[in-house]
């Protein structure tokens, strides 16, 4: 089997996964991109050359130059600084929302999968209803009701994504709970909560991690889309979607205003996707046997 190397050493699953991941060149590139994004969002105040909110009307709509590397917007705000700060907003929203989604989704999935029966049926049909709606449409409706703000954006995206995690977790739980070791634990008198938290949960986490990386990238896009429509981050907070929305009227006069936030979104989405691809290959035992 794969678990034995030529020298006969037995490898732990996590080490195995790392080796699988290392083989994936694009995955490494993706991870580097993600690390850059995280670093930028953590240190944006250090890296940014200007205050992203400082207006300087005399320098409005400047093309990229030595003073303003990526040009300025109509208020003379430095585009580079706004992009760097925008990274923080994007990361905040995507990580925050996915964290909420994972928490909700895993809890629901574990309960639904472990107890089964009518409860499982009810939960899954409710989630089906949620799945039936186009995600962005539902997000629009929820944000319009809650009112546009960063917190509501986080909650909305988190709520909408939890169904995906719940489904994956439930599926895995169904498979895991029939295994002999669970039966063995139950036979020694362990309580349900112990079984769920300490024996089932660790075994269903890897698909959750893979799903999370993919959803991080779509969450970034949903955030950008909602901000573009004026329902996400509110001005003057720099956000990629909002920047594109503001720049759309200057498409011909100042194309750099639309191009760079667009590139930033591509960079982030690509990074998370490449990393997700590699993670999936590394963590999925069936794929690694190929």
């Amino acid at each position: 089997m794969d678990e034995k190397k030529e020298n006969g050493e037995i490898l732990s699953p996590s080490r195995l996964a790392w080796m699988g991941f290392k083989k994936h060149k694009l995955g490494i590139i993706g991870s580097i991109m993600v690390i850059i994004l995280i670093l930028v969002s953590l240190f944006s105040s250090v890296v940014a050359p200007y205050d992203p909110l400082a207006m300087n009307p005399k320098d409005s709509l400047r093309a990229p130059c030595a003073k303003y590397w990526l040009g300025t917007d109509r208020f003379g705000r430095d585009q580079l600084s706004r992009l760097l700060y925008g990274t923080r907003i994007s990361m905040e929203v995507s990580f925050g929302a996915i964290a909420i989604a994972i928490f909700l989704g895993v809890v629901i999935g574990l309960i639904s999968g472990y107890y089964g029966g009518i409860l499982d049926n009810i939960i899954m049909r409710l989630l089906d209803i949620l799945f039936a709606f186009p995600l962005l449409l539902l997000a629009l409706m929820l944000v319009a009701v809650l009112g546009p703000s960063l917190e509501n954006l986080l909650l909305t995206i988190g709520f909408l994504y939890h169904s995906r995690f719940a489904r994956i977790v439930r599926g895995s739980v169904l498979a895991v709970k029939e295994k002999e070791f669970i039966e063995a634990i139950r036979s020694v008198g362990a309580r349900d909560i112990t079984i769920i938290l300490f024996f089932i949960l660790p075994n269903v986490l890897s698909p959750v991690i893979v799903q999370a990386t993919f959803n991080l990238s779509t969450a970034i896009m949903v955030e950008a889309a909602l901000s573009f429509l004026g329902l996400g981050t509110q001005p003057p907070t720099p956000s990629w979607g909002l920047m594109i929305s503001e720049s759309r009227r200057f498409m011909e006069l100042a194309p750099w205003l639309a191009v760079f936030p667009g590139l930033a979104i591509i960079f982030a989405v690509l990074g998370f996707n490449l990393m997700g691809d590699a993670l999936r290959d590394a963590l999925d035992p069936r794929l690694s046997q190929r």
Partner: peptide, 24 residues
């Protein structure tokens, strides 16, 4: 919205904080 944004910035200089809320 551009007017709201620049007004927000100008008011900030005397310590007035204006929060913009976009609505349909």
């Amino acid at each position: 919205i551009p007017f709201a944004e620049i007004m927000q910035r100008q008011l900030l200089k005397v310590g007035i904080k204006m929060n913009i809320v976009q609505k349909d």
